[in-house]
Nucleic acid binder design. Structure first.
Lengths: 343, 343
DNA sequence: GTTAGCACTCACGTCCATCGAGTGCTAACA
DNA sequence: TGTTAGCACTCGATGGACGTGAGTGCTAAC
């Protein structure tokens, strides 16, 4: 049996209807609501074929049909192939970003908020991540008589700042001198390389061991845990959908959303294409068999890629989501581009 | 009618049982399970009195009784008065904080995690907040040829850092000189005062307007939004309790947990006592009529107070929660104290 | 003051009948 | 050969009847 044009149209109608209503759709609905020019009996035959082909599932004999993951896959591929991703929401997205200049962390958080409120699904935003950030400047800022703040600026923005103890009373000028020296020595290195270099410098200098030890510690710590913070927005949105009216299911989903590390990994694993769509089992996450994940990427001015993603039920409004993600990706990229220019 | 010793004991038993089971408790249960030496009929009479006194509610005629907010209030007051808050969990709490030194943000997040996993309720942690932080140091760190990072260190730790544009090409030494000058001028001031001062300094200096404008903007922004980030842990825990088996309710609760600003305000409004317990309607939040909020405070080394809180169903295990909050408060205070010593 | 006894209430679970949406199949039709 | 009308059949959902049991309130006796 082959897929033909008519089957495709019927499948499309079924998916559209199911996305809208979340209720198994029957042959009569299709023949009446969608103007097919075919009787319900004919539709019925076609639906039977579509089921055999694996595009439809039947919850039980006397219910309508429900699109399978394979059907959504076809649907989405078609959507992507035709490139018919409207971007009408540009204004809505842009409006949300009016106002003050922000820090990276704020931007991430805010983007997640906007995405979730526009889509009514759950949004996840990962910060841009280059291959290996390289040190640009390292500076010690005096905080009190016996402590200082270490700020490391990398080419991907500020990586980390930590207060360290500087046992031997050092004044502001000395700290500045050390900062200059360290910057000169370490600029252009990755965090790991810099960390490895510190002991040698320390040996060479013969003093300020405490300071250098603190810097060393920071560098190693920052090197280990490269993933920045993940922003999640609207995780409670999922409870609005009948798919999650089962509390147990909802709980599992939400606690997954709470373990940010795991979540970041899932999203990051989606790949780096302009758009990726993982439907149900394709996500590879058992807890998300009836979710889909749609991601898009954005670029910081330095060419580092970040990921934005939407998690929703498999019957998600792919077209709308793709559109919004695309627009948001562009907006983020543009904004970060602008910020680069300032920088 | 008066409250007597026996009524109190019965009420106590009812509350204990209800906290355990979440099921309306009947007279027979009390007379059998709790060794009262009284028949169910007697208990029944007493329960009737207790209902009249407003300590018990009856969902419907043929169900058992349920403690009212007033009952919990009595129960908690008794608990607090007797000061019988065990602190056995010290070790459990302390174990979670073993390991590396952390930044404030991490500590907050982690504390929320630990609290929620120990109590199985939802935990909220607010960072320490002084009356008005005062500037200790202000430093400009070069980021690129045309931009710099402003770091403001206050007596409560780092307040804010933002990248600003420095249109006129300034080298590291010049920035340092400006930093020194600004530190000298602004040290000891609140953010607001400092912000107000900038224009005058700018006029006096007659140059570097762009830099000063950037600093000005940062100071105003930081002054406006004093609340730091709020950490929330285990918000999905609430779904484990039958009180939230209603999805609609759960959704409302969770979306409240997601609007961090509002949440911070609610928790902060609880007051600054060592412990506060707000039961049901006492919270003043319509969405939380059947929740209780228990908070405790901790102190940073600089005497600034932070708040930790647990949100759970009104039938929460107050004793355990108070104990854990108390211990956690102490641990946090001690940890931050130590950190101060380093600083 | 305490308790045994009893009538009464009411949520809950089960059973059953009904309903209706939807299917699959067959036979007739274009 | 594809389409459609007709019909029997399936099965979840809905709702009413009913028994069950937990729990109460009241009364009267101890």
């Amino acid at each position: 049996m082959e897929m033909d044009e008519r089957k495709l149209r019927i499948l499309q109608a079924i998916i559209d209807d199911y996305i809208l209503t979340a209720v198994p759709v029957g042959s009569r609905t299709i023949s009446k609501k969608y103007d097919m020019g075919l009787s319900s009996a004919t539709i019925r035959n076609e639906m039977s074929d579509l089921e055999e082909l694996g595009y439809l599932d039947q919850p039980h004999v006397s219910a309508g049909r429900v699109p399978s993951a394979k059907a959504y896959r076809l649907y989405v591929d078609e959507l992507l192939k035709r490139g018919r991703i409207p971007s009408t929401d540009t204004i809505a997205v842009r409006e949300h970003f009016q106002g003050r200049v922000r820090q990276m962390g704020d931007v991430i958080d805010h983007a997640a908020q906007v995405l979730s409120s526009l889509t009514h699904y759950t949004a996840v935003v990962l910060p841009p991540k280059g291959r290996e950030p390289r040190i640009r400047t390292l500076q010690l800022v005096p905080v009190s008589a016996v402590s200082a703040l270490v700020v490391i600026v990398t080419d991907s923005g500020i990586v980390r700042d930590t207060v360290i103890r500087v046992s031997d009373q050092l004044d502001s000028d000395t700290l500045y001198a050390i900062s200059r020296m360290l910057t000169q020595e370490l600029a252009g290195m990755t965090l790991g390389e810099a960390g490895a270099r510190i002991p040698e410098i320390s040996r060479r200098m013969q003093r300020n061991e405490a300071v250098l030890a603190g810097v060393h510690q920071l560098l190693s710590a920052a090197g280990e845990k490269p993933v920045g913070h993940v922003a999640v927005g609207g995780s409670s949105n999922m409870l609005s959908y009948p798919e999650y009216s089962d509390v147990e299911k909802a709980r599992n989903f939400l606690s997954l959303m709470e373990t940010r590390d795991k979540l970041a990994q899932i999203i990051a694993n989606q790949g780096e294409m302009a758009f990726t769509v993982r439907i149900g089992p394709e996500t590879g996450v058992p807890e998300m068999v009836d979710c889909s994940i749609v991601t898009a990427t954005y670029q910081s001015g330095r060419g580092q890629k970040g990921t934005i993603g939407i998690i929703g039920p498999t019957r998600m409004q792919y077209s709308k989501v793709l559109s919004i993600l695309g627009t948001m990706g562009q907006q983020l990229s543009r904004m970060l581009q602008d910020e680069e220019d300032n920088v």
